[in-house]
């Protein structure tokens, strides 16, 4: 089943065209890696999917339901957008955990607020949310750290909490923006392991990454972006091992030189 369809997305900042007619789709349970050099528009694309930026042109469809259409955007209310953006989760490069909350509180905060808004934050519900938070932290290997504050955790641990936090709202599609770029090399492994385990559980994911080996081994599909366009896309292993386009070849050659 097609989980995500992105059609003809365009986005400019002032006169700078950052995304030029981006289209792709993603099957349920598959993971998509997005690679490309700095400034090619990868982050902007993820931000568009998560309603942090508004595309100028194009549509976004999730599970058959069109959740964004640039032409109709002016009509969307805040409430609409809040509901729609929950179809996506986003893990930031810089974690962005809430410093005043413990790991567990970070994971459960949004669920609690939502339950409170719907006036069903009774003891039972609270208990269920708490339980789910503990489960998620266990899943990312941090059961023993759930009462620690972010500043008491290593970067890798913080990013794993951020992943658990994003999973708490059960998004249809989980996006990662260079989840290991802010980490010391020895800490990237533990985060990649968690993402890999999500792929094994058939979580639909979009991962912007500079880790080519990881993209090749874990992602099903891959997109290579350059200058705001998709230059090449296809099965991950094929594109990385046998790129067809000249620009992809150059990019991968340069990557291999540097690593």
């Amino acid at each position: 089943m097609e989980m995500l369809n992105v059609a003809h997305i365009q986005k400019s900042f002032g006169k700078v065209e950052v995304l030029k007619d981006i289209s792709f789709s993603l099957e349920q349970g598959q993971s998509l890696a997005i690679i490309g050099s700095s400034g090619s528009g990868k982050t902007t694309l993820l931000r568009c999917l998560n309603f942090l930026e508004t595309p100028d042109v194009g549509t976004i469809t999730v599970g058959g339901e069109q959740i964004f259409n640039a032409e109709a955007h002016a009509k969307y209310s805040d409430k609409d957008i809040r509901k729609k953006r929950l179809k996506f989760g986003l893990v930031f490069q810089s974690f962005n955990l809430f410093p005043q909350y413990t790991a567990l509180e970070n994971v459960t905060l949004a669920c609690k607020l939502m339950a409170k808004e719907q006036k069903k934050l009774n003891k039972q519900e609270l208990e269920a949310i708490q339980q789910k938070g503990i489960e998620l932290l266990t899943q990312v290997g941090l059961a023993d750290r759930m009462h620690n504050y972010p500043h008491q955790l290593s970067g890798g641990q913080q990013q794993r909490v951020a992943i658990a936090r994003a999973l708490a709202l059960e998004p249809d599609i989980l996006c990662f923006d260079e989840p290991t770029s802010a980490l010391d090399p020895e800490l990237t492994g533990e985060v990649l392991k968690v993402i890999r385990s999500l792929a094994d559980r058939k979580m639909t994911m979009i991962i912007v990454t500079h880790e080519m080996a990881f993209a090749r081994d874990v992602a099903d599909q891959i997109i290579f972006m350059d200058g705001g366009v998709i230059v090449e896309q296809g099965p991950a292993r094929e594109v990385i091992e046998h790129p067809q386009e000249e620009r992809t070849k150059q990019f991968l050659a340069r990557y291999n030189e540097n690593n």
């Binding site: 998560n50 809040r82 996506f88 989760g89 986003l90 949004a110 939502m114 709202l169």
Partner: peptide, 17 residues
Amino acid sequence: PVGQKEAGEVLGMTKTQ
């Protein structure tokens, strides 16, 4: 940092929350 606000937004929180 804007990241704090954006992290909240992405989690479906309202501006007031």
